[in-house]
Deep mutational scan, measured.
Amino acid sequence: MQYKLVINGKTLKGETTTKAVDAETAEKAFKQYANDNGVDGVWTYDDATKTFTVTE
C-alpha cells in the first residue's frame, strides 16, 4: 500500500510518499525521515486516506 506524509514543519514543509506493508511500517519510515530532516512535532494519521501529518 502507498502512504503519504504531510510535513508542516517550522523550516520544512511538503509531502512525501512511501510504499509499506502496513501503517506501522510506514509510520516508522516517516518518523525516521522527519528525524533525519530535523522535524519534531505532533503526529496524526488518517486511515481513510492513508495519510500521516506531522506539525511542529
Score class of each variant (00 low, 15 high):
residue 3 Y to K: 00
residue 8 N to S: 10
residue 12 L to C: 12
residue 55 T to H: 08
residue 24 E to I: 15
residue 5 L to T: 01
residue 28 K to D: 05
residue 5 L to R: 00
residue 21 V to I: 14
residue 32 Q to S: 08
residue 26 A to E: 00
residue 42 V to N: 08
residue 46 D to R: 03
residue 36 D to K: 10
residue 53 T to R: 05
residue 50 K to R: 14
residue 25 T to N: 09
residue 27 E to M: 15
residue 50 K to F: 11
residue 38 G to C: 07
residue 37 N to W: 12
residue 48 A to L: 13
residue 33 Y to T: 03
residue 46 D to S: 06
residue 26 A to L: 01
residue 44 T to N: 09
residue 47 D to R: 07
residue 51 T to K: 03
residue 11 T to C: 10
residue 14 G to K: 13
residue 5 L to M: 06
residue 29 A to C: 08
residue 1 M to L: 12
residue 33 Y to L: 07
residue 30 F to D: 00
residue 48 A to W: 08
residue 34 A to Y: 03
residue 8 N to W: 11
residue 54 V to N: 01
residue 52 F to E: 00
residue 36 D to Q: 10
residue 54 V to H: 01
residue 54 V to D: 00
residue 7 I to K: 01
residue 24 E to V: 11
residue 18 T to C: 09
residue 19 K to R: 11
residue 51 T to W: 02
residue 19 K to I: 15
residue 49 T to P: 02
residue 17 T to K: 06
residue 39 V to T: 03
residue 20 A to S: 06
residue 6 V to G: 02
residue 56 E to N: 04
residue 13 K to I: 12
residue 56 E to D: 08
residue 49 T to E: 07
residue 27 E to A: 10
residue 34 A to T: 10
residue 50 K to S: 06
residue 36 D to T: 10
residue 26 A to F: 01
residue 14 G to F: 11
residue 12 L to G: 10
residue 12 L to M: 12
residue 46 D to K: 04
residue 40 D to R: 13
residue 36 D to H: 09
residue 17 T to C: 07
residue 54 V to S: 01
residue 21 V to H: 12
residue 10 K to S: 13
residue 18 T to K: 06
residue 56 E to G: 05
residue 47 D to A: 13
residue 25 T to W: 07
residue 22 D to F: 04
residue 12 L to V: 14
residue 11 T to F: 15
residue 44 T to V: 11
residue 33 Y to Q: 03
residue 35 N to K: 15
residue 49 T to H: 06
residue 11 T to D: 15
residue 45 Y to M: 02
residue 32 Q to P: 02
residue 41 G to W: 06
residue 37 N to C: 07
residue 6 V to Y: 07
residue 48 A to K: 12
residue 19 K to M: 15
residue 49 T to Y: 04
residue 29 A to I: 15
residue 53 T to E: 05
residue 32 Q to T: 12
residue 9 G to A: 10
residue 41 G to M: 02
residue 37 N to I: 09
residue 32 Q to K: 14
residue 51 T to L: 04
residue 32 Q to M: 11
residue 9 G to T: 15
residue 52 F to Q: 00
residue 51 T to E: 04
residue 25 T to L: 09
residue 38 G to R: 06
residue 4 K to D: 02
residue 4 K to G: 04
residue 26 A to D: 01
residue 12 L to Q: 09
residue 2 Q to R: 08
residue 55 T to S: 07
residue 24 E to S: 11
residue 22 D to I: 03
residue 16 T to C: 08
residue 6 V to F: 07
residue 27 E to L: 14
residue 33 Y to R: 02
residue 37 N to K: 15
residue 42 V to H: 12
residue 41 G to Q: 01
residue 51 T to S: 04
residue 23 A to W: 13
residue 50 K to G: 05
residue 53 T to Y: 09
residue 4 K to T: 15
residue 40 D to N: 13
residue 9 G to Q: 05
residue 10 K to H: 14
residue 33 Y to I: 08
residue 14 G to T: 15
residue 43 W to Q: 01
residue 27 E to S: 09
residue 37 N to H: 15
residue 40 D to M: 15
residue 38 G to L: 08
residue 35 N to A: 14
residue 34 A to P: 00
residue 32 Q to C: 05
residue 32 Q to Y: 05
residue 1 M to V: 15
residue 45 Y to P: 00
residue 19 K to F: 15
residue 53 T to G: 03
residue 17 T to A: 07
residue 42 V to A: 11
residue 15 E to R: 05
residue 5 L to G: 01
residue 24 E to L: 12
residue 13 K to D: 06
residue 44 T to A: 10
residue 41 G to Y: 03
residue 55 T to D: 07
residue 34 A to C: 09
residue 52 F to C: 01
residue 42 V to Q: 10
residue 31 K to C: 04
residue 36 D to W: 07
residue 29 A to H: 14
residue 8 N to A: 09
residue 21 V to A: 12
residue 47 D to T: 08
residue 1 M to P: 09
residue 53 T to A: 05
residue 26 A to C: 02
residue 32 Q to G: 05
residue 35 N to E: 13
residue 4 K to Q: 06
residue 29 A to F: 15
residue 25 T to K: 06
residue 33 Y to G: 01
residue 2 Q to I: 15
residue 43 W to Y: 02
residue 20 A to T: 05
residue 18 T to G: 04
residue 25 T to I: 07
residue 36 D to Y: 08
residue 23 A to V: 12
residue 37 N to G: 05
residue 26 A to H: 00
residue 17 T to E: 10
residue 1 M to R: 09
residue 16 T to H: 15
residue 41 G to P: 01
residue 30 F to K: 00
residue 56 E to L: 06
residue 13 K to E: 06
residue 10 K to D: 09
residue 53 T to D: 03
residue 14 G to A: 14
residue 28 K to P: 02
residue 8 N to T: 08
residue 45 Y to K: 01
residue 21 V to W: 13
residue 3 Y to F: 12
residue 13 K to P: 07
residue 46 D to C: 06
residue 46 D to W: 03
residue 3 Y to N: 00
residue 36 D to I: 10
residue 17 T to Q: 10
residue 30 F to I: 02
residue 42 V to T: 13
residue 48 A to Q: 07
residue 39 V to E: 02
residue 23 A to S: 11
residue 13 K to G: 07
residue 29 A to Q: 12
residue 43 W to F: 05
residue 12 L to H: 10
residue 3 Y to H: 03
residue 41 G to F: 03
